[in-house]
């Protein structure tokens, strides 16, 4: 009974913390953008402007939520949920910390340890394309529709490359359990180099990283919302809280993507010499969560940094990169990984 209470508390805690990060990211996004452009950024609301996300939230909640005349009201209302909810659910499979023993119960710091693991993550994140397409279609607006069509084409193209990159990692680690994958990366080579998958599969990591940018609709792949061509893309007609949900969904997808990249390629919450993977003390668990947070945060900052560095790709360049570069590279990587895995039988 009490283990169920502990589990429920763990789920609530992870979810609550997860929901607090998007506002923080919006603040960071604005601040880093400003710094890169030699500006100061928001600094009026609270010390250093840290209450700015709160002010934004109040503004968006109190704003009128306009539903234009000729929209499909049901899809129009449901579309933002389809973006936000999958992004939030997909975080469930990410292990955020080491096991911890509390009042005689061993607690896994992971909401759900599915048999399908990483496949669940890929399946759920793919759902968010429905949100963009529904929103774009229901808006009954040519710019929105263009955005929706682009997002569909882009997500389908890059999902292939991403899946192939993940297969390479699965082949070299031999499991789809994210939890076991983290444990497998907890030892070191030569006493100092962490046994992270990024050193086994550098090419798969690069492909996954590029595909992750495309999947989360971040620059340089933000063609679905390309504000300089399509007004606002799929969210042109949205305002108020519905727009805010699209916005939150983008940032949540970024967090989930960063977390999964850390788990797949950078050893999750482990760090040799700092976190003991097989210890169950509270102190060790806290340390592991901090390590996980720092790694994920580094990726999030990298996402933002790239956004304010690179210009948007042209549509044909996007398709060319996806189909003619990333997928062949991923297939080649898969082929050589397979040969390496079967070297004992072949040679």
């Amino acid at each position: 009974m009490s283990s169920m209470v502990l589990d429920a508390g763990k789920i609530l805690l992870i979810f609550a913390v997860f929901m607090q990060i998007p506002p923080l990211l919006i603040y960071l996004e604005r601040k880093i953008c400003a710094f890169i452009q030699d500006r100061i950024g928001p600094n009026r609301v609270g010390p250093f402007g840290i209450l700015q996300p709160l002010a934004d939230a109040i503004k968006l909640i109190t704003k009128e939520s306009i539903t234009p005349k000729n929209v499909d009201v049901f899809l129009y209302t449901v579309a933002p949920l389809f973006v936000m909810v999958p992004a939030a659910i997909s975080f469930a499979v990410v292990p955020v910390g080491a096991d911890v023993k509390l009042w005689g119960h061993t607690l896994q710091l992971q909401i759900a340890d599915f048999h399908v693991g990483i496949l669940f993550f890929l399946a759920i994140t793919s759902l968010s394309v429905y949100g963009l397409t529904f929103g774009a279609w229901a808006s009954n607006n040519k710019y929105s529709l263009y955005g929706g069509i682009r997002s569909t084409a882009q997500m389908i193209s890059y999902e292939v490359a991403m899946g192939l990159a993940v297969i390479c990692v699965l082949m070299s680690s031999g499991t789809v359990y994210l939890r076991e994958m983290v444990f497998a990366q907890s030892h070191t080579y030569f006493g100092f180099l962490p046994a992270w998958n990024v050193f086994h599969q550098p090419l798969a990591f690069v492909i996954f990283l590029i595909a992750a940018f495309a999947e989360t609709n971040r620059l340089p792949f933000d063609l679905p919302e390309a504000e300089s061509e399509l007004v606002g893309g799929y969210h042109t007609e949205y305002s108020g809280m519905k727009f805010a949900m699209f916005f939150m969904g983008e940032y949540m997808a970024m967090i989930s993507m960063s977390a999964i990249m850390v788990t797949l390629f950078f050893g999750g919450w482990t760090l040799p010499g700092v976190v003991d993977a097989h210890s169950t003390t509270v102190w060790n668990a806290l340390l592991s969560v901090v390590v996980f947070g720092i790694k994920t945060g580094a990726f999030l900052i990298f996402f933002i940094w790239i956004r304010w560095t690179l210009p948007r790709l042209r549509y044909d360049q996007l398709m060319k990169l996806g189909w003619k570069v990333l997928i062949p590279l991923a297939l080649m990587n898969l082929f050589f990984t397979a040969i390496w895995g079967l070297r004992d039988q072949i040679f």
């Binding site: 880093i32 710094f35 890169i36 452009q37 030699d38 500006r39 100061i40 940094w305 790239i306 304010w308 560095t309 690179l310």
Partner: peptide, 21 residues
């Protein structure tokens, strides 16, 4: 070009700011 761009933006990140309050 990508690497040069990344280096340029991080250089600007640490530069003094032009904004006047």
């Amino acid at each position: 070009g990508l690497l040069k761009g990344i280096a340029l933006t991080i250089k600007h990140f640490f530069r003094p700011k032009f904004t006047v309050q």
